[in-house]
């Protein structure tokens, strides 16, 4: 177990340089943006030179680049991502109000990916070349190849317009008391089943739209990974030992898990960052829509804030994946 502890410490130490790299790149990109931010933030062409000077001083725009980077880092650590010239509110406030909706959507989508992708992949591998295997293959291929916007629109047409079973879009009703900002969970915590079902009904279509690519990928990776393990010698020995089918399967799945966890981690990052299209189709008030608004109106603090946030989450998820590897596979801990 000591090995595991050292591994975790080592891995967390490498986390820091990655973080610095992320902020550095975001900072440099923001510097490359054409235009005069001081003038823009002071009110545009009509701004008087005095005001522009004042803005420059206030935001340290007159100091050398490395000092600006220092201030940027310092503000970042304080959670200060600047003020959006569009909404005139701190970017962090905006993000905090949009982000939970995206997190909720991504968690739901990730659950779908795990609960559908892995079992489909396992069944596919165990029933290799059967009708089920071929069906899963086709289902996965469709998932990987269908454009998200088309899938979203079709699902909307089918379940809202044609069948009338589910709402067309938007987030569900807010529960009376907010604990986690995740409405589905909060409805449960308030004991309001009506709100819970309504929120599930709202989230299920966008979550599936977002998840389908991942379901297909995870099913394919799981299938090949399980097949790979099934052909290894130790599986024969497990059978020689006279273990039950279920016990053998447990060994096989644990061994097949490493590549699956990799995909799941990347997928979750992608779900957060890639929610833009889905959120737009389903009027989901999440960070993706905020980013689109920001891009359309050249709201640089907002764009940078979202970039840093998603980058940060990517890094954290990768860290979590690496730690999971070590928990699964003792050889990684060395």
């Amino acid at each position: 177990m000591a090995e595991l502890k050292y591994y975790i410490i080592r891995r967390i130490l490498t986390f820091l340089p990655t973080l610095i790299g992320l902020t550095l790149i975001t900072f440099v990109v923001s510097m490359l943006v054409p235009g005069n931010p001081a003038r823009l933030w002071a009110g545009g062409i009509k701004a008087s030179p005095e005001v522009i000077e004042a803005v420059k001083k206030r935001y340290h725009l007159d100091e050398p680049l490395y000092m600006q980077y220092y201030y940027y880092l310092r503000n970042l650590l304080r959670g200060d991502l600047g003020v959006s010239p569009l909404t005139h509110r701190p970017v962090i406030t905006d993000i905090m109000s949009y982000f939970p909706a995206t997190v909720e959507l991504a968690i739901f989508a990730e659950l779908l990916v795990i609960l559908m992708g892995i079992p489909l992949g396992i069944i596919s591998a165990l029933k290799r070349d059967s009708v089920i295997d071929h069906a899963v293959r086709v289902f996965s291929l469709i998932g990987v190849s269908v454009p998200v916007f088309w899938l979203g629109l079709m699902l909307q047409w089918l379940f809202y317009y044609y069948l009338g079973w589910l709402p067309a879009g938007g987030r569900g009703p807010a529960p009376p008391r907010i604990y986690t900002k995740l409405y589905v969970l909060d409805s449960l915590l308030c004991g309001r089943w009506d709100l819970f079902w309504s929120n599930v009904a709202h989230i299920i279509l966008p979550a599936f739209t977002l998840a389908y690519i991942g379901v297909g990928m995870v099913a394919r990776v799981t299938r090949s990974s399980v097949l790979d393990v099934l052909s290894s010698d130790f599986v024969i020995f497990l059978n020689v030992k006279g273990l039950s089918r279920l016990s053998v399967l447990r060994h096989v799945i644990k061994n097949a898990l490493v590549p699956i966890v990799t995909i799941l981690g990347l997928e979750f990052g992608g779900l957060l960052g890639g929610a833009v299209i889905t959120e737009t189709i389903f009027f989901w008030p999440g960070i993706g829509r905020y980013a689109v608004q920001g891009i359309n109106s050249l709201d640089f603090p907002a764009i940078m804030g979202v970039t840093v946030l998603i980058g940060l989450i990517y890094i954290i998820v990768n860290l979590a994946v690496d730690l999971l590897y070590a928990v699964i596979d003792p050889r990684v801990r060395l």
Binding site: D233, F234, F237, V240, D329
Partner: peptide, 18 residues
């Protein structure tokens, strides 16, 4: 495993690494 058992050629691959 209980009445008939077997030992393999390559012990390096006979055990589950995890």
């Amino acid at each position: 495993g209980s009445k008939i058992s077997m030992v393999f050629q390559d012990p390096n691959t006979a055990l589950d690494p995890l």
